[in-house]
Design a protein around this nucleic acid. Structure first.
Length: 991
RNA sequence: GCUCGAGUGGCGGAAUUGGUAGACGCGCUGGAUUCAAAAUCCAGUUCUUUCGGGAGUGUGGGUUCGAUUCCCACCUCGAGUACCA
């Protein structure tokens, strides 16, 4: 967890010395693998903890089904996003199921595209508020904006590859030749300017051809640099520099002296203003300006000329700032309306198109055209930048939005009709009406667009990942404690040599009254940084004692590395010894459920890569092969309950609950499907039956007050609840008494059904205590034995397949085991012969060895079981009791039915366990045949078979087949067109 | 919507470098044994049939001497994911 990523070193080099130690740490913390951050988290009030995305199912907690809300909290997080690409790449190196790999790929969600910056042209509404001076002080020459680190490389590259004109001018500017220091290809905010004299605030741009078509854009850029940052921008054409350098230099010289004069004037003014106003509105040194920018991520920069509007998420931070007074009411109303809708509602309702115009405009980076800025909830605040450049002709959502609000839909595709829908295909698409991109294919246009955006500093190629950093704090007691204490509010790591620290004793495992995690209840939870141990909270007064972290780690902390611990589980000194790790390396076969695809299995891969980077483990993937075993599902039983109001003869009204057979639910729902008439008829019948049954019930159960009428019920309020499957028989009939006694509140249920039988409905679901569908294998073990159960589970079907638990076939494997046993016995007596086995017996044995070997390789255990059945059936027919056959057979069976195999092994006279016996060796010679039963097909349909020697040539086979009486009958006199003979396989006659 | 997977008897399922579809088991039917039952054993069991055959692996096409297997389109079910720009 001390891991510091590369970016932080870079960061430190840049800013390190100027930052105070405290700030430095705080910032550094932002770049660690594990870091504290204020994140919006899934808070579950009922559990008092934060949940990870994969712990929430359908908006409620996976555990317990409690509601979950969004909430801002300071949490430890892990920067899994830094490993996104490597987690993606690693997938091709491991033998995991394709669906699982696919779901990890989707979860990581890589999209390749570009970041494009649009400037906002709106009147700045923040005017007059003033700019707060930036607390972050950077070197004077570092005039780059927030994205500098991204542009820096670009600037370097441009410096290394100047245009001829640039090279010439630089020769005369460098080394203070004009008495002022110039820099070339320098970052100012998010622009790279050709040359700049920082002291005189003068920018020199040398324009090549590219600027001809972007005059407007250049104007915008000039405007920004001049107004916002107080620079003067002068421009020269390439030809001017190359043709008349002296004129250019003299112009620069005069501009320099001009600037010097202006700057001194401004300085005076500034000193003046400082008396009245803390901050000036137009500050020369301010990092932030009057203009705002909207960055968007797009996978289709090639369609940039098709942009006709922009859409921001309603939550986008710029919305309030750029909205014009005229549009404010509409925008506010829209934001209020969307805020009321939950995230789920918003996602569920894709069809309704809604949005509002902010009144502001952005400038297109290439054309300089004004682009209206809208807000709309189809743009998600937490993906990308929360803003999109809308290309209605190429994106269906943008298209729908544009149609709905009557926004222009320019077509930038060649020979494509967009009157009905957007054109979203990429392949084969040719770009049109797009200036320098026109006529290019999608791929070429994409590359060129990025290239040009980068050149002018309005964008850059970017890969975006959907994968979010993982929250690593839990407000629970049971979890590994963090080795962290807080000194002056800053987290400090406890050195590894003082670990482990152990969970403290607490009175109760619940959150504290003031909402702190359960560890807040501990009295012995402070860190003595001198003695390096956990001490009582009383000592917090001492200068060297600090409070410890109260959060604990989530379940995936342990599950992300335990397999490495298994390699050296008794190691007291470290998590696993190097020798053991190098020996075992990784997990050969990991069997686990696919439900862990985007949780545990992704986190564990992430940790393994990190541990690998640190040199702790020798491989960067933890499991070579992974199989998703299918889950054995339960068959849940449901009963139907209906609340009714009942009135008795005295006039008392009581609320009762009816227990309704599932037949009624079926009748009503099918009647509803047919017609209203049918439904009404069914309802009447239902009503009649219920009244009768309720009447009967009260007549029997309650003396005194007699039932008069059923007053009120709502047929739509029949609730279906799980009943314990043990109350239900094979015909789906409920044991009503057992169900009523199950819980107190069911004691007074009134069963409604003529004949007193209540049927349940059944559904296959995951086995779960809360669904009361768990079956216990103990009973089967008792009746058939553990080997039968084990064998039966394997025999059910392929390992990867999920299936409901049904015991109907168990007698098959049970009788197989009995037959197996009988091979070794003569009546009551164990009797095995030492005689030499026959050819047929050897054939059966070796066929079995071969198949079982293959099946084990393929994890196809169900077919192994059937192979054993075949072998035992054959040996029974052969009356085989030869040791030479039965000994290897017992070994083959032993992994599948270990108890019976062990017993037989011991009867065969062995003292050591069968588990230690060598696996039988397959010998091909026993399977070699001299003849083959050929299938004879006519036009590919098998009609009969005939035995032929394998020594025969094709010609001889054909001769034999054609002479066969059935062949003659089939052909009925016709001449065959062709005869296909594959020796040892098939004969096919075409004709 | 997108991505992936799967569709074979009454049921679980078998067979894929293209080569006898339905292995093995359950269930069912008939028989033997038994006073009877359990257990065990034997025979049959894809559908259809005029008993010669004919049809058949979700549907429709294609490639091939030959397709459950390969290709295209569609349908249904399941899983994952979802206004991802």
């Amino acid at each position: 967890m001390q891991f510091v990523m590369r970016i932080s070193n870079h960061f430190l080099r840049m800013n390190g010395k100027r930052l105070q130690k405290q700030n430095k740490k705080q910032i550094l913390l932002q770049y660690r693998l594990t870091f504290l951050s204020d994140t919006e988290v899934n808070w579950c009030p009922a559990l008092g903890t934060v949940l990870a995305n994969d712990e929430i199912v359908n908006g409620v907690s996976e555990r317990g089904g409690h509601p979950v809300v969004r909430k801002k909290m300071t949490q430890w997080s892990m920067r899994i996003s830094a490993y996104a690409q490597r987690l993606l790449d690693g997938l091709s190196t491991i033998d995991w199921p394709q669906p699982l790999k696919d779901s990890q790929t989707n979860w990581i969600g890589k999209s390749v595209g570009a970041m494009v910056t649009f400037e906002v042209l709106s009147p700045a509404l923040s005017e007059g508020k003033g700019e707060k001076s930036d607390s972050k002080r950077t070197p004077g020459y570092m005039t780059g904006g927030n994205n500098s680190y991204l542009l820096l490389e670009k600037a370097k590259e441009m410096r290394a590859n100047p245009t001829p004109a640039e090279a010439i001018l630089w020769k005369y500017l460098k080394g203070k030749k004009l008495k002022s220091k110039f820099r070339q290809q320098h970052l100012i905010n998010d622009f790279i300017v050709d040359f700049v004299c920082l002291s005189k605030k003068l920018i020199i741009e040398v324009d090549g051809k590219i600027h001809d078509y972007q005059l407007e854009k250049d104007e915008a850029r000039t405007l920004e640099l001049e107004q916002k940052s107080g620079f003067k921008v002068i421009r020269f054409k390439n030809e001017e520099v190359i043709g008349d350098i002296d004129a250019v230099l003299s112009k620069i010289d005069s501009e320099l002296s001009n600037q010097a004069f202006l700057l001194s004037k401004l300085e005076e003014k500034k000193v003046d203003n400082n008396h009245k106003q803390a901050n000036v509105t137009v500050s020369l040194s301010s990092g932030k300006g009057l203009r705002d920018r909207i960055s968007v991520f797009t996978t289709r920069p090639d369609t940039i000329f098709g942009v006709s509007f922009m859409t921001l998420a309603p939550e986008h931070e710029l919305v309030a700032k750029i909205t014009t007074d005229a549009q404010k009411a509409a925008v506010d109303a829209y934001i209020n309306a969307t805020a009321k809708r939950s995230e789920r509602d918003r996602m569920a309702d894709v069809k309704t198109i809604s949005g509002a115009f902010t009144g502001a405009y952005a400038i297109h980076p290439f054309t300089g055209i004004k682009i209206p800025i809208w807000i709309g909830d189809y743009v998600l605040a937490n993906y990308g930048t929360g803003a999109v450049m809308a290309v209605p002709c190429g994106d269906q959502r943008d298209y729908d939005f544009a149609k709905h609000f009557d926004i222009e839909i320019p077509n930038i595709f060649e020979n494509v009709d967009i009157s009905e829908a957007a054109h979203t295909d990429k392949e084969g698409t040719v770009i049109a009406n797009s200036d320098f991109l026109s006529g290019l294919s999608y791929k070429k246009a994409l590359k060129l667009a990025i290239f040009e955006l980068e050149k002018m500093g309005a964008g850059y190629g970017k890969i975006n990942y959907r994968l979010r950093d993982a929250v690593f704090s839990r407000q629970r007691y049971w979890g590994e404690p963090f080795p962290v204490y807080y000194k002056d509010g800053m987290p400090q790591m406890i050195d590894a040599k003082h670990l482990p620290i152990v969970l403290p004793e607490v009175e109760k495992y619940l959150p504290t009254e003031d909402g702190k995690p359960p560890l807040g209840n501990a009295t012995e939870w402070a860190w003595d940084s001198r003695a390096n141990k956990v001490v009582s909270n009383d000592k917090l007064k001492n200068k060297t004692v600090y409070p410890l972290e109260l959060n604990t780690m989530p379940g995936w902390a342990g599950s992300s590395w335990y397999f490495n611990r298994y390699m050296d589980s008794n190691n007291e000194g470290e998590f696993a010894g190097k020798e053991a790790l190098d020996y075992w390396k990784d997990v050969d076969l990991y069997i686990g459920g696919s439900e862990h695809a985007t949780g545990h299995l992704l986190y564990a891969r992430f940790w393994q890569k990190f541990l690998f980077d640190k040199g702790i483990v020798p491989v960067d993937e933890f499991a070579k092969k992974l199989i998703n075993q299918g889950m054995i599902l339960g068959t849940s039983a449901f009963v139907n309950l209906l609340r009714v109001l009942v009135k008795d003869s005295v006039g008392n009204e009581t609320k009762e609950t009816l227990l309704i057979t599932d037949d009624w639910r079926m009748i009503l729902s099918s009647a509803k499907l047919m017609s209203d008439q049918n439904y009404n008829k069914a309802l009447l019948e239902f009503d009649k039956v219920m009244k009768l049954e309720v009447q009967k019930h009260f007549a029997l159960d309650k003396n005194g007050a007699r039932f008069i009428d059923l007053i009120k019920y709502n047929i739509d309020e029949i609730t279906r609840i799980h009943a314990d499957v043990s109350f239900v028989n094979a015909s789906n009939e409920l044991n009503v008494e057992a169900f009523k006694n199950w819980r107190n509140e069911y004691n007074s249920l009134i069963p409604v059904e003529e004949g007193g039988k209540i049927k349940v409905s059944r559904e296959v679901e995951k086995m779960s205590k809360s669904k009361y569908n768990v079956v216990n294998p103990d009973q089967i073990c008792e009746e058939y034995g553990a080997d039968s159960l084990r064998l039966f589970e394997m025999f059910l079907g392929p390992l990867e397949q999920a299936k409901p638990w049904k015991t109907s076939g168990i007698s098959g494997v049970s009788s197989f085991l009995k037959k197996l046993w009988k091979l070794y016995f003569n009546g009551e007596n164990f009797e095995v012969s030492d005689a030499a086995p026959t050819k047929d017996e050897l054939k059966t044995l070796h066929k079995t060895i071969k198949k079982v070997e293959e099946d084990i390789e393929n994890f196809s255990f169900n077919t192994s079981v059937s192979t054993f059945m075949i072998a035992v059936n054959e040996l029974t027919v052969l009356k085989c009791n030869k040791r030479a056959i039965l000994e290897p057979l017992a070994i083959l069976v032993s992994p599948y039915a270990p108890h019976i195999a062990e017993e037989l092994w011991s009867l065969l006279g062995h003292k050591e366990s069968i588990a230690k016996a060598d696996f039988p060796i397959f010998e091909e010679t026993h399977l070699v045949e001299s003849s083959k039963t050929y299938p004879v097909s006519f036009n590919g349909k098998m009609r009969f078979t005939m035995d032929l020697s394998l020594d025969l040539s094709k010609e001889e086979i054909e001769k034999a087949v054609m002479a066969h009486e059935k062949t003659i009958a089939q052909l009925a006199g016709r001449e065959p067109k062709k005869v296909i003979i594959v020796p040892g396989k098939i004969i096919n006659i075409v004709g």
